[in-house]
Design a protein around this nucleic acid. Structure first.
Lengths: 136, 136
DNA sequence: CGGCATCCCGCAAGATACTG
DNA sequence: CAGTATCTTGCGGGATGCCG
C-alpha cells in the first residue's frame, strides 16, 4: 500500500498543496474510468494472443466513435498496455494486440466485472428503494 | 459475462440506439472512476467493521472537498454500499460504515490497487519513452 | 458538525468533416 | 482503412457561502 493514511491525521488542515497526482491507484482508476479503456482491454484480451484490426475493434465495442477508439488505443499504446502493428499495404491494415502488461491488467478488471454482474441488480434495487424513500 | 460481443457483429451499423446504459460493468466503472468513490470505500473498509465520522473520513482522504465527500457518501448510501447513522446530539454526529455489499467490493478494488502499485512505475516509464519517440 | 445551495470552469467526449 | 482536425457541449467537480 503506497496510498496515504497514517499521515495527515495529526496535521489538521494542510490539504490542497500536495494533493495526490502521484497516487498510482488514482492514476490507474482515472484511466480505467475513462469510459472506453476497460472495454477495449476486455475485447483485446478476449482476442489474445491474437490481434484485432481497427474496424474489428470498433465493431466489437458498440457505441464507440471512431475518435474515441483512436484516442483510447493511443492511450493504451503509450502506456505500453497494447501494441500497434501496421501492415504496409494500400490501404494500410493496422493491428492491435495487448502486451503482457495489458494482459496482466485483464485479471483484476475481470474480477471487477464479475462483481458488477453479480451485484448490480441489487444495487439498482437499492437505488429505486432510496428514490421512493426520498419522495416521502 | 453479460456484456456484448457476439451481437452487433453481423448487423453492421446499428450503433447509436441501444448504446449501453444497461451494461452493469459500465455502470460500476462509472462509479468507481468517480475519482473519490474507490478512496472512500478503501478508507471505510480499513476501518471496518467500525464506523467513521464525516470529519474523520475527510481527514483520511487527503484532497477531498467537503462537497465531494458529501456527494460520494450519498452515492454509496443510495447504492447500499454504506450506511449512515446519525447520533441525535447537538451538534449531531454522523457515522458511516460499509455494508456487507460494500465490503464485498473492497476485494476486487484491492486487486486493482495492487496491480496499480505493482505496475504504475513501469507505465510511467513507458509514457516517458513514448514522449521521447514522439519528439524525434 | 455536517451538510446543502449556488456559481463557475475545465476537460472528457460527441458530432462532423477532411486526408494519406 | 484508419485515422487526424476542429468545433461544441455536458457535467464532474472546485470554491464559496449559508443553515439546522
Amino acid at each position: 500500500m503506497t496510498t496515504y493514511e497514517s499521515t495527515y491525521e495529526t496535521t489538521g488542515d494542510r490539504r490542497g498543496d500536495l494533493l495526490d497526482p502521484l497516487c498510482p491507484t488514482r492514476q490507474l482508476l482515472d484511466r480505467v474510468g475513462a469510459k472506453w479503456t476497460s472495454m477495449a482491454v476486455k475485447v483485446l484480451a478476449e482476442a489474445a494472443p491474437g490481434e484485432l484490426r481497427f474496424a474489428e475493434l470498433r465493431r466489437r465495442i458498440p457505441g464507440i466513435s471512431q475518435k474515441m477508439l483512436s484516442v483510447t488505443l493511443q492511450s493504451l499504446v503509450r502506456d505500453g498496455l497494447a501494441e500497434r502493428r501496421v501492415e504496409p499495404t494500400v490501404p494500410p491494415a493496422v493491428h492491435y494486440r495487448l502486451t503482457d502488461l495489458g494482459l496482466s491488467l485483464e485479471g483484476p478488471l475481470a474480477a471487477l466485472r464479475e462483481w458488477a454482474e453479480t451485484h448490480m441488480a441489487q444495487i439498482d434495487r437499492n437505488n429505486r428503494l432510496a428514490e421512493e424513500v426520498g419522495r416521502s
